[in-house]
Design a protein around this nucleic acid. Sequence first.
DNA 1: TCTATCACCATTTTT
DNA 2: TGGTGATAGA
Length: 734
Amino acid sequence: MDVSHILDSLNDQQRNAVASPAPNLLVLAGAGSGKTRVLVHRIAWLLRAENVSPFAILAVTFTNKAAREMRSRIDELIGQSMGGMWVGTFHGLAHRLLRMHWQEAGLPEDFHILDSDDQLRLIKRLIRSLKIDDDRWPAKQCQWYINAQKDEGLRAGNIEHFDDDYTKTMLEIYAAYETECERGGMIDFGEILLRAHELWLKNPQILRHYQQRFQYVLVDEFQDTNTIQYAWLRVLAGTNNQLMVVGDDDQSIYGWRGARIENIQQFSNDFSDSDIIRLEQNYRSTSTILNAANKLISHNQGRLGKNLWTDGADGEPISIYEAFNEQDEARFVVDRLQDWFTSGNRRADAAILYRSNAQSRELEDALLRVGMPYRIYGGHRFYERLEIKNALSYLRLLINRHDDTAVERIINVPTRGIGGRTIDTVRQVAREYNCSLWQACVECVNQTLLSSRAANAILAFLKLIDDMQQDCSGLELHQKVEHVIEHSGLIGHHEKEGGEKARARIENLEELITAAGSFDDPGMQEEEIDVTASSFLAAFLDQASLDAGDTQADETEDAVQLMTLHSAKGLEFQLVFLSGMEEGLFPHKMSMDNLTGLEEERRLCYVGITRAKAKLYMSYAESRRMHGDVTLCRPSRFIREVPGDLVEEVRLKTTVNRAHAPARGGATFGRDPGLGAEVPQTQISLGQRVAHGKFGEGVVLNYEGQGNNARVQVNFDAVGSKWLVLSYAKLEAL
DNA sequence: TCTATCACCATTTTT
DNA sequence: TGGTGATAGA
């Protein structure tokens, strides 16, 4: 068979990686160097040139999106869909193993997945029932502790404890949490990986089966693997299988979540027969952008070393804008976006990136004001939304009455007269009898432990669920979902809430029915899994836990992309804005006082810069309103770390308050009338005190346009800074 | 039991 | 500033 098309489009380094005969391979792939491309072509090469069976290939990614993309690109390249190959996320693949070998993994057949929200609620309940002071030991922190331990492969019993209060308390909660999960047949995200690892260690015959099967293991974003994930890979690879890992130490930005950048260094030690290939040619950005990124990241210590280059053009300089405040910054960004769009570009090719989600509000406001469509990533994903989780909890109960997490969630949603007192009683009974909440409900009613009103309410709840199950039997998945949403009263519950938010919630519930209608169990295509009709709902629920469902959002409209720097990893845009480049915000104050934290922040900045293909803006504000009050800011050190010859400062708008600042060198754009300058054809001058009918008194800071079209920015004493159209605002000069 | 009000608190988040 | 969680009154 002619396999030349698999190698033809690649450069030398890429080709070496794709056709490598090495027993193990580490590919250090810089940003934009064709990392995914190499993985995809490598798999095609194995299948077509080396006649490897698809059954012998396992490819791991971190996100479902990446897994889907990889699979579809493989299919595209080889011209057909390959069954038998395992392509998925660490969690997805580990979960699959646990479903197939639930007995050997020590799980009940109907075990279910606890997402982080469920996990937090459970820990809160445990802290309360253990009578631990939740002010001193917040559930959040405890959840963090447990997850961190699991990421390291440690169970409560394995952890050494000294006599310090912290470890003792954490371990007490961790142990109770383990017991509770065990009792309820629940596993959290960390547990999925931990169990899958233990499954292999404890069952050599199962391990041998998979080792013999998966002779080729490929890993994407290797710099993000944590201890347990790497351990899992090592066990699977054994001594005979080929392991190819692709990653970039400079793009490791999840250290705070347990990712171990050291795994990259460790790889060469653990697999002494491995080759290292560097992909350093960048196909994404202009050389200006690339040089800026290279210079910035060179401030980090202990890198593996890698220098990205491009044979593309220099491109435009990086523009830096010093804004007066966060509103001015947002306005600047939006102005540039409007220019960009009116020059015939797509809005979707532009992205605004920021360090923390809170920064999006100001930007959204500014976009909204000019009516520019935008799409914001992050926040709650589809399956994490409150209304969706409630609906899913009802569905969970149809499968398993003893799902306490689900009962806790919806026993009184919508309100049906089961209050805190009643639930407390039920919980206590459950603890005494060591049974599920559902059983405890039954006991409470049977033994008349409750007031008759409460007992009736409980009874109604039990009956509601039983009836639902009865009515749902035999229905298609989407009909089940529809039935449950209708009969649970969730729609009415949200209608009563009223407002824009409530409407969105109802829409989401309807969207859930649609999602169920188009649900196609990925496991169905696999040879090993026999999915019966009754577990189809279970498969849907699993998918809902493991895939947050970010594909649900409307992607048809041409819209500007807003997201955190973290969620921008792996993406690219023609035009990129890095906003909020200020000390304390980026690098964030929580991470800037230790070297590890600071270097991770710098890598994050590196990721941000390298998202840009053609043009990059960086902006910062001199003052910024944060959680209510105004703070003065200094420009981020990362700006200084970009060489001056790659940068130009933008001064399109007048900024009054800098009359005292030294004049900046280099070319300036536009005008800079300074303090006291008059807005053309008006009675208003900058720095002047004015009064407004509604907002009170303030100082004129800035203006744009002239005559009837002139807008002025006034910093009001009472309500802060606002932009007003002069001809409407009726400002009185004071 | 429900709901309105008031402290409290706030990185990043693939699964 | 805004979203959350505890608490007091209806």
